[in-house]
Write a protein that binds this DNA or RNA. Structure first.
Lengths: 224, 224
DNA sequence: ACAATGCTTCGGTTACCATCGAAGCATGAA
DNA sequence: TTCATGCTTCGATGGTAACCGAAGCATTGT
C-alpha cells in the first residue's frame, strides 16, 4: 500500500527532500532523514518497489528521484491535508538544533535563518514570489548592491536561475536558492558572518557573533 | 501525519467504504474493515483527529463521512498510484469467502456476484455507465420485463436514482445500486434464488442451487 | 424502571517493522 | 594489488500500535 510507505517518518523526510525535483544519493537521503545508511537502504528499496522513486546508478553513487509529477502531486495533496487540519508533521528532524537553525542546502543557506531571510526579502518587496518562481525587484537589486556588494551581472548563469524557491525540510517552508542564494551564502562567508562547520560531512553553518547581529539587522523579524 | 492514518489497512478499508460519499455508522465501518467495534472506535477517533472524517450523531448511531472532496481526491490519487504500479491493496477483507461472494450492501447485491452482474449488464448494453452515473437502456428495460418481471414504473422514486454505481469493497469495483439494484435483489428473494443468511447481523446472501443456475444463465461470465 | 443497542474506554497481549552493528559486495582510486 | 568509498544484506533488538475482552456510558424502546 502506497500510503503506508509515505506514512513512515523517515521515508516521508526522504520524499520531502526529493520534492524539489533534484536527485539525491542514498547517503544524502539518509542524512536528510537522520538515519544510518543501512536503514535508508531498506527504506529506499521499499519506495522503489512501491514505484515512488527511481534509482539511477552513476559511478559508485545511486541517485534517487521521484518517479514523476504524479507522485509529487499526491505528496503535495497529502501535505495540503496535513497543513489544513493544523496537523503538520511533527518535527522529527535532526535532533541537532544547530542543523535546524542554519545549514547548507547544496550551496545556499537553509534552516530557520534561511526561511527567515526569504520571508524578509519577500515582505520588503525586494523579491516577488509566485509559487516556485522568484524574481528580484529593482529595489532588491539596489539593496543587494548597497549592503552586500552583489551586482546582478555576478548572478547570471547559462542554465541556473537567479532565484528559486527551495523547500526547507526542517521548516517545511521555502528558502532562497539559485545563483543569488549561492552568492549571498558566499558573501556571508567572505564577510566572516558565517562559516560551514569544519566537521567533515557536516552541513551545519555557524554564525559568528557579529555575523548574527548583521544578519538580524538586514533580515531580522524581531523574534530573536 | 496523514499518510500514516491512511496507511493502516483497517483504516484504509473504512475510508474506501466511505468513498461512495455516503455516511456509515461506526459498526458498519467496523464490519467493512473486518474488526471489532472497539478497534474501529479507536481508528475512527484517529481519523477524526486527523481531519479525514467527520462524525454526525443521530440517535444512538454515529454516522461518519469523509470530510470533503479534497480528502476523497487525495485518496483517489493514492489509489491511482497504487493501481499504476500494480501494487493494488492486498485483499484483507472478511476471511469469510461467502461474504466476499455475495452479500447485502444496504438493500442490493454486492460481492463477486454483484460486480459480475453489473459487468454483464454493461457488456450486453443493457445499461450505460459513465463514472458513477448509470442509465438503463431500452434493451435493458425489455430484458428486465421479460426475465424478472420488473417494469420501469416500479422503479421511480422521488429522491433515489434508479441506477447508481456503488463501489464494492471486496472487489474494488462497481456493483449496481439504486432502486433497480434493490428491486433486483428483492426479486431474487421472491423467486427463491437467494436469501439473506438468517444469522442475526450477517450480511451474507446465500444462493440456492437453482438460483445459482438461473443467475448464471442471465449474468454469467462463463467463469463459474 | 428495566432491558437492549450502539459506541467508547481501559488493560494487557501480540505482531510487526524500523533501527543499528557487523559483514559483504561493488566501484573507483592509489 | 591494495585501500577507500558507497551501498546493500544479514541478524538481532526494541518500541510502537493494532487488536480484542471486559467493563462503562449514553440513547432508545418497552
Amino acid at each position: 500500500m502506497v500510503a503506508s510507505l509515505v506514512g513512515d517518518p523517515a521515508r516521508a523526510n526522504m520524499l520531502t527532500a526529493l520534492m524539489n525535483g533534484r536527485a539525491l544519493t542514498a547517503s544524502e537521503l539518509a542524512q536528510e532523514a537522520g538515519i544510518t545508511p543501512q536503514t535508508a537502504s531498506s527504506h529506499l528499496s521499499k519506495l522503489e518497489a512501491g514505484g515512488l522513486v527511481e534509482p539511477e546508478k552513476q559511478g559508485r553513487h545511486r541517485y534517487y528521484r521521484l518517479t514523476d509529477d504524479d507522485v509529487a502531486g499526491v505528496l503535495e495533496g497529502l501535505a495540503g491535508l496535513a497543513a489544513r487540519t493544523g496537523h503538520m508533521r511533527v518535527r522529527t528532524g535532526p535532533k541537532d538544533p544547530a542543523l535546524r537553525r542554519a545549514r547548507i542546502c547544496y550551496d545556499h543557506l537553509a534552516g530557520d535563518l534561511g526561511v527567515q531571510m526569504l520571508d524578509s526579502l519577500r515582505e520588503r518587496h525586494l523579491v516577488r514570489q509566485k509559487k516556485q518562481e522568484i524574481e528580484l525587484t529593482a529595489e532588491g537589486e539596489r539593496f543587494l548592491a548597497k549592503h552586500l556588494q552583489i551586482s546582478p551581472d555576478m548572478l547570471s548563469h547559462p542554465r541556473r536561475p537567479i532565484c528559486k524557491a527551495c523547500l526547507d525540510w526542517s521548516e517545511r517552508r521555502h528558502h532562497l536558492a539559485g545563483t543569488l542564494g549561492a552568492a549571498m551564502m558566499q558573501r556571508f562567508a567572505e564577510l566572516k558572518w558565517a562559516a560551514r562547520d569544519p566537521t567533515p560531512g557536516s552541513r551545519v553553518v555557524n554564525f559568528t557573533r557579529t555575523g548574527e547581529k548583521q544578519f538580524a539587522a538586514l533580515f531580522g523579524n524581531g523574534k530573536d
